[in-house]
Design a protein around this nucleic acid. Structure first.
Length: 261
DNA sequence: ATGGTCGTTTAACGA
């Protein structure tokens, strides 16, 4: 089973890019972030014509996540538990049944948090605490799961081209990294780094500005975290960086996870 | 040192 996470930066602007990508690269499950669309405004035929079941959790103008699956998803839920009122659409879960068993897929768009300090950064850290609580629940239930998406977290200095420029950024401030480590230290596996230990220069995002792509001034902020049973099934994790060089790209590229069965 | 680019939606705001 091949699962891809992709921050598309606007599903309407990315119509052709995502349509072509689904047909050419054909993930079994596609986990999308920043659809920037209401549920009713998502171009459903893009998914359905390519052979996907579509589940969205959208809002007007900003944020928004979606799950696309070649096989039916079970128990799709929207929103991250832990806050009574959360008007930001950043989280969706669904269970896919593969040959190797069921996997709970958690798609997330973690808040950027800039400027830090400030209310946006407070919201980011609170959101990370809620995500940790959700991971604890799934671990306690012994449910095989993965959490993937745009984490807006730079786990280590090798995940950014120029760490000194980003030192005070919400994506890598010490409290951000501490919250990330608490999550990983629950016993989760960060798929890409485990498959490519110590290798710098692998990014999943390049700013549209200042020739960031041409200079490879990128960030690795799109991640897969795997529960132990899912980590045991991992056979590959790769970043599809070539998509960033194509016409009318998103500022992010897909990250892929391959599971045995 | 500064500004630079997109997307959504049309005046800024978010990233």
């Amino acid at each position: 089973m091949r699962i891809a996470t992709f921050n598309v930066n606007g599903i309407k602007a990315r119509y052709q890019t995502v349509s072509d990508w689904l047909r050419e690269d054909a993930p079994d499950v596609a986990v999308l972030q920043e659809i920037k669309s209401l549920d009713d405004a998502f171009p459903r035929e893009m998914a359905e014509d390519a052979g996907y079941e579509l589940h969205t959790h959208g809002q007007k103008g900003f944020n928004g996540v979606a799950l696309l699956s070649k096989t039916p998803l079970e128990d799709v839920t929207r929103g991250l538990p832990g806050e009574e009122v959360d008007d930001q659409a950043r989280y969706i879960e669904g269970t896919v049944i593969g040959e190797g068993g069921a996997v709970r897929i958690c798609g997330l768009y973690l808040p950027n948090g800039n400027p830090a300090p400030g209310p946006k950064y407070d919201y980011k850290l609170a959101w990370m605490a809620r995500l940790e609580a959700r991971a604890r629940e799934l671990l306690a239930a012994e449910e095989p799961f993965l959490m993937c998406g745009d984490y807006n977290v730079l786990p280590e200095d090798i995940d950014v081209a120029r760490p000194e420029v980003m030192a005070t950024d919400a994506l890598m401030l010490p409290p951000t990294r501490a919250a990330w480590r608490r999550l990983v230290n629950l016993g989760l596996t960060e798929a890409f780094r485990v498959r490519h230990p110590g290798q710098p220069g692998h990014y999943s995002y390049w700013d549209y500005q200042a020739g960031a792509w041409d200079r490879n001034h990128g960030l690795r902020i799109d991640h897969f975290l795997l529960s132990p049973a899912v980590a045991d099934r991992m056979t590959a994790c790769t970043i599809q960086s070539e998509l960033r060089g194509r016409e009318k790209p998103s500022d992010h590229v897909p990250v892929w996870l391959t599971l045995d069965g």
